[in-house]
């Protein structure tokens, strides 16, 4: 029983990380119709920046904020100076993000080397937590908590603020939104920075579980894609539900059939695609 309880918690923790990654991806996709393939690389870049920050100031939360800010700036520059240049060329934009993800991955390899770098768990959360007869690693509970807090914050941002109303308008009908005077162009930059910041901070927060290693980007990108395909592009709720489904399927897949865990990832995706091509909560066909 203890084993399965731990696996459940691991699933939730992975789901939480995937939410941090996929929420930004989904918002960017929903608003800008860009499949931002740098997203996995931004997650990895965040993790590595977190490593460097923590060498100076060994505080995970500070490192997560710093990495989120740094990656947000990077994302903003990418959006302003490259993606904006080829606006309207959707395939071109995807390919540019892919090219940039190769550059980031190689630059990380060059800067931080090829060996995995562990990111230490904050001392306060190293103690296991006892709930009933089960013992849980505290940090994973904290990750789930962070994901839920971020999800609520994003929900409030989207539903209760002016900015969120403008983003929703942009997702539903970008042309109409700009016709009624919503600064869609500035929204694009804002959402891109926000998505990048979530990915970058997510990389650091995932650090104590995943550590920072070359190939982290390629491991995370397909999971993020599957989350968005499952949940539906442009939907926060979709990203949330999709992230936890993917977290469970992947974690239990690894536990039960380690060789074929990746193949098991096919199953929910194929089911959803077969019956609901736009994803569980998607507003439009991708």
């Amino acid at each position: 029983m203890q084993y399965w309880a731990i696996q459940t918690l691991n699933s939730l923790a992975l789901g939480g990380l995937l939410f941090l990654l996929a929420a930004g991806f989904s918002l960017i996709f929903g608003l800008m119709r860009i499949a931002n393939l740098t997203h996995g690389a931004l997650f990895m870049l965040g993790a590595y920046i977190g490593v460097s920050v923590m060498r100076q100031w060994p505080n995970l939360w500070f490192a997560a904020l710093a990495a989120g800010a740094a990656v947000a700036i990077f994302g903003g520059l990418l959006e302003r100076f490259i993606l904006r240049q080829i606006g309207g060329n959707v395939l071109g934009q995807v390919l540019v993000t892919l090219g940039v993800s190769f550059i980031i991955a190689d630059a990380c390899l060059l800067t931080w080397g090829g060996d995995p770098i562990p990111i230490p768990t904050p001392p306060l959360l190293q103690m296991p937590v006892r709930i009933g007869s089960f013992i849980f690693p505290a940090y994973r509970l904290a990750v789930v908590g962070i994901a839920v807090v971020v999800a609520i914050a994003l929900y409030l941002l989207m539903e209760r603020t002016r900015l969120g109303a403008m983003i929703r308008a942009g997702v539903d009908d970008p042309q109409m939104a700009s016709a009624v005077g919503i600064p869609v162009s500035r929204l694009f930059s804002t959402v891109f920075c926000l998505g990048a910041a979530l990915a970058g901070a997510g990389g650091v927060i995932g650090g104590p579980i995943l550590s920072a290693y070359p190939g982290l980007d390629a491991d995370m990108l397909p999971l993020a894609l599957i989350v968005v395909i499952l949940g539906g592009a442009g939907s926060l709720l979709g990203a949330f539900v999709g992230a936890f489904i993917t977290g469970f399927v992947y974690t239990f897949g690894v536990a039960l059939l380690p060789d074929l865990a990746y193949v098991i990832l096919f199953l929910p995706m194929i089911l959803v695609i077969a019956f609901r091509p736009r994803g569980l909560f998607g507003k439009f066909a991708a």
Partner: peptide
């Protein structure tokens, strides 16, 4: 379109 691209990539 992009959905096709993401699906082929994920597969």
């Amino acid at each position: 379109g992009l959905g096709f691209l993401m699906l082929t990539l994920a597969l």
